[in-house]
Structures are given as C-alpha cells and as structure tokens.
Simulated scan of single mutants.
Amino acid sequence: MTDLSNGFFADGPVALPSGGPLYLQLKRWIEDAIHRGDINPGDALPSERDLAAKVDVSRVTVRKAVLQLVQDGVLVQRHGSGTFVAPPTQRVEQSLSQLTSFTEDMARRGMEVHAQWLERGLYLPSPEETIILGLSSGDQVARISRLRLTGETPLAIERASLSARVLPDPTAIGNSLYRHLDKTGNRPIRAIQRIRAANLDEENAHLLQVPVGSAGLNIERTSYLASGRVIEFTRSIYRGDTYDFVAELRIGDSPSNGGNKP
C-alpha cells in the first residue's frame, strides 16, 4: 500500500476538471488519478481534513465526493482505518438455464468460495413457508442462512428454508446444501426463480460490505423434486456490482419450422 500523503497527493498545486459542482470536479479528479495509475487499488486516501486543505475545498465538498465514489464502488471505507481505493471487482456470470448450487457454479469458474454461517436451526414455520413447502400442522422448518464469499469479498447472502423432515439436522450441512440433498436423494431437478432489483438495506449492505442503498439483486427460488413436490425455498441477495445473470433465448416452434403440425 502506497503512502499517498508523501506521493501523489503531496505533488504540486491541484487543478480540478472544470464544469459542474465542485464535489463532482473533485470526484472526477480522483477517478482520473486512479485510471492513470497514479493511485492504485489498496492505496489509502489522505484524511478528509488533509484532502480538503490540499485541494483547497471545504470538508463538506470532500465528504460528498468521497461518498459518491464509495457508492460507485471506486472507493471503500473501513471503519477505524480510513478510505481506500477499491480492488478491481471480478464479475461473475451465472446461467439462468442450469440448476446448480453456488459452490458448484463457482467451482466451474475456478473460484474458491467459502461460507460464513448466519443461522442454522429448526423453527416454527412462517405462514409463507407453510404454504410454499406444503407443511402440516406441527411441522418444523429448517432454516440455513449463509454469507457467501470468495477470498475476503462477500458475494451473496442465501437464506434457505426446507421441511425439517427433509433436513432434520441443519448443522450437518457442509459447504453445499445441494451436495447434502443429493446424498439423501432429495436434490431438486428444477426450479422457478424470480429476480428483481433492489436497494440494499442497512443489515444486508453491512453483510455485503457495500454502502446502504447500493444496487442488489433479490432472488427467490422455489425448487422441486421429480415428483413435483417443493423441496426448497431460498431467498438470496446478490451484490449488484459482482453478478451478471445470463439466459440463452431460443425462438419458439412455429408452422414455418415444422412446429405445431396439424
């Protein structure tokens, strides 16, 4: 990590790009420095006070510029440590046409992932879980919640619900839920996913290490066995700056290509 107080930010007078509010000029100046390689990933910015004095602007202007850059993912703020240039983000493409576990999907890309457990246990089901999972009176629901990471970077939060009859001991899950279900003959063969854009609330933004209000993807997946029985209901939240969901589309059969024959 470079000491920028004795490097780039210690150089001569600053000439901000012209045009627009002052905080946007400062924002562009910092972005340009990063793009040129004058400031590198992992480098710490000077304090708000020092940067304001260097550029000859108010601390409010610096704060607004830095906040914009944090929201854009260009900078990261670490409590008690300061503000740093964010490392390059590796985007992940996930197919919408294959039903795979998170672990399997990342392994195919050569990415090593691990989980931080947030919750594992048996509970009384919510009305939503009772209906979706087809639970009876007196049934319990197994809930497992995990923060998925690659290295130190969190990618997604997964919160899965299954019947306790299927998963009587949630603590038996290793790194992959689907691998465990495969061993017990309960691995799903198809699923319906609903994806919607969302702005991350304080709890989820904190877990994913992004600013509150950052873009995210909320995904609800209902998975089925070959018999048609629902086996899993999962609600996941993905960081919007790390994931691209990809689907292959094909034109449907038509009379012109032999489909819908009389």
Rank of each mutant, 00 (worst) to 15 (best):
M1T: 13
M1F: 08
T2H: 04
L4R: 07
S5V: 13
N6V: 14
F9T: 01
F9C: 00
P13Q: 13
V14D: 07
V14Q: 10
V14S: 11
L22W: 02
K27Q: 14
K27P: 04
R28Q: 13
I30K: 08
I30A: 07
I30T: 10
A33C: 09
H35D: 15
G37C: 05
P41M: 12
D43H: 03
L45E: 04
D50L: 12
D50S: 13
L51G: 09
A52T: 09
T61Y: 01
V62G: 02
A65Q: 04
G73Y: 03
V76G: 04
V76Q: 12
R78D: 09
H79N: 07
T83Y: 11
T83G: 06
V85S: 11
V92I: 15
E93P: 00
L96C: 10
S97W: 01
L99E: 11
F102I: 14
R108K: 13
R109F: 10
G110S: 02
M111W: 09
A115K: 14
Q116F: 06
Q116L: 11
L118P: 06
L118V: 08
E119R: 15
L124P: 05
T130E: 06
I132Y: 05
L133M: 03
G134Q: 06
G138P: 03
A142N: 05
I144S: 08
P154D: 05
A156Q: 14
A156H: 03
I157K: 02
I157Y: 00
S161H: 07
A164I: 06
V166T: 15
L167E: 05
L167T: 06
A172M: 09
A172I: 08
S176Y: 04
Y178V: 07
L181V: 11
T184K: 06
P188Y: 04
I195H: 14
A197D: 01
L200Q: 05
D201G: 11
E203R: 12
A205F: 00
H206R: 15
Q209E: 12
V210W: 01
G213S: 05
A215P: 00
G216V: 00
L217Q: 02
N218M: 05
S223F: 03
L225I: 06
A226Q: 14
V230F: 02
S236W: 04
S236D: 07
R239H: 01
D241Y: 01
E248I: 13
G252K: 06
D253K: 12
S256M: 10
S256Q: 12
P262T: 12
